[in-house]
Nucleic acid binder design. Structure first.
Lengths: 366, 366
DNA sequence: TTGAAAGCGCTAACAT
DNA sequence: ATGTTAGCGCTTTCAA
């Protein structure tokens, strides 16, 4: 690792000029086979690896794409962890059942999959991926840092303040993921929350006839939650019913809030169908219903949204709508890659289809 | 986004030299407040973001750390996905229950957490993270690419062939994650597989007395699987018993193989305790036992390894050993960061403690 | 087919 | 406190 070899070292050893070394690496055919061999030999003898920085500077492009997430981990107060001095630590610790860290976790899983999709597509397109997580760091230095190092940036909706984003967009293309497109001129990749929810609601309505409906809503300020409500409401209206008849209980997307909401419903009278704005809340509600002896789907239909793993394992398995997370990541890279070669094209708005997964919780036995 | 502003542009606009601009950004105190303001004004007016490439070249360090994973996704044959031309695609698709993609998935979750830990710690240490996934790409160009762009590289054990790794290590520090340290001189971060398994085995032994033991092993060529067996065997021997009395059935870490192994056991006589080399196999076995009317933990104790989420949700909940995945990522970054400032120090071998999670499946009712 | 040389945008001496 | 200048390691004309 001494001091990394450079083109000059390789050129010396091969007895050629640095230009030739560069050519061998970038357009091998432009150089005579014998020379090429000499150079390649020198390259491996020296363990030469080209400097990305120098390349980036000369080429005026880095070959790197940035992916920037909102940070859901309370990073600041993560315990300090010091591996280096803890040589004598015990090799294990014993715990009597771990607290179920089920809640909150899911937004991260979402991000993981987006990341995987992005990495996959980046690789296919010949880019590497740089990732950053937004933390409430006063001057947003991380995303700025990234912006200086990448050819294009993908940001999750509302992980970067508008003004910062606007500034970065002056330097490199930006694509916004998964939020509702606002009046900006960035490229967007998103999903049809409302339409899918409407379809699912139709499916429910078809079974409950004029039974009583309940909607388990998310926090008021969640754009996703809002879209889901709108889809639901649209389907209800289309069916010739009034949304005023719908019992709306509000939660905050956590399982606990779902439980509380369900308890309210149980107290005030069980509806015929409960449509929840996300899976966690629906699962919490299922818990309560089971505890109260209310049978799903016989007495009550329940549906969720997100398609988290736990939804498939619940009793009964939960009908839900799955976000195409991998594809979101892939799509973002595609949009970005295309933007990189045609800077002036009109802003793109790519909408990905959602998957409505019908399971037992929404299928009234016939 | 026109043409990105450079130090020169900023210097011009602020009426100073480029050196002053650079100073304002790197050591603000070295410049008179009025000048500083002028420069900062110019910076925001122009939307200036420093070029990472130029910086990296001049500073001879990039501030980027690389994380390289083995690729478990069959990337090559992922469906092509073309968002850009599918403007008229339907906004959703309906599926009757999705096939449970439970198996195989888990290694990726593992990686996701490592990644999160690495990102967190990288941020704390002032680095950004670049991620790459190993695919069977003939010349390993991805990892090479990364090596040229980062200050240090973290690789998951055996995701990079030895010779390639050796070469990269000549250029930048390398730390190897989670594999058994071999006779190399890289820094390593790993866990005490064997010791933890031994402890868990002791816990089991204490309950079963001289009951019959069975071990559900992983593939023969898995280093992890081997270490786990060794820990188990050591505890058995220490207890004054012979490993020859242990019924060993072999699986391949998948749930299906766990099921098959359990069927063998059921056919040949149910043991008093089954220690499995991973959770998936243990869960598969639980399925079979339940189906066969064998009660866990009353008739038979069962334990797993890995601490996947599903282990907490099984019936009964599965005792397991949880890998400190987040900490693995964090530790890797710490080791790397330290190496970056003292290149010549001796290779580090950091061992992280595992968490033994005792649940119902291993607690004989009293 | 190869070499010489001019940048790419920045940092860090060294001068002033 | 600020400016001048020499690189950092590479790509890419332009000549030979």
């Amino acid at each position: 690792m001494s001091k990394a070899a450079t083109v000059y070292d390789v050129a010396d050893r091969a007895g050629v000029s640095i230009a030739t070394v560069s050519r061998v690496l970038r357009s091998p055919d432009a150089v005579r086979p014998v020379t090429r061999e000499r150079v390649l030999d020198a390259v491996s003898a020296l363990g030469y690896v080209p400097s990305g920085s120098a390349r980036g500077l000369a080429e005026r492009r880095t070959g790197v794409l940035g992916l920037y997430f909102p940070g859901f981990d309370a990073a600041e107060d993560a315990p300090p962890l010091d591996v280096l001095s803890a040589a004598d630590a015990p090799p294990f610790a014993i715990v009597r059942d771990a607290a179920d860290a089920d809640d909150g976790h899911t937004s991260m899983l979402f991000l993981d999959e987006v990341l995987r999709g992005a990495e996959l597509e980046a690789w296919k397109q010949g880019f590497v991926l740089m990732v950053g997580v937004g933390r409430d760091d006063p001057d947003r230095s991380t995303v700025r840092d990234m912006a200086g190092r990448v050819d294009g940036l993908m940001v999750l909706a509302s992980s970067v303040p508008d003004d910062v984003l606007a500034r970065l967009a002056r330097r490199i293309p930006v694509v916004v993921l998964s939020g509702p497109p606002r009046g900006d001129h960035y490229d967007h990749v998103t999903v049809s929350n409302a339409e899918a929810m409407a379809e699912l609601t139709r499916h429910v309505l078809a079974q409950v006839g004029d039974g009583r409906l309940a909607f388990l809503a998310g926090p008021e300020d969640s754009p996703d939650g809002l879209q889901r409500w709108e889809g639901f409401a649209a389907a209800v209206t289309d069916a010739g019913r009034s949304v005023d008849e719908v019992t709306v209980v509000r939660g905050d997307f956590t399982r606990g809030s779902g439980r509380r909401a369900a308890e309210e419903l149980v107290a005030s009278g069980v509806p015929t169908a409960l449509v929840a704005a996300n899976d966690q809340m629906a699962l919490g509600a299922l818990d309560v219903f089971r505890g109260a002896g209310i049978r799903v789907p016989e007495d009550l239909l329940v549906t969720g949204f997100d398609g988290i793993d736990a939804a498939a394992l619940s009793h009964p398995p939960l009908t839900t709508i799955r976000q195409p997370m991998i594809d979101l990541g892939r799509a973002a890279v595609q949009v970005l890659a295309r933007r990189l070669e045609s800077v002036e094209a009109d802003p793109v708005l790519a909408r990905l289809p959602l998957q409505i997964i019908l399971r037992e919780s929404s299928q009234r036995p016939s």
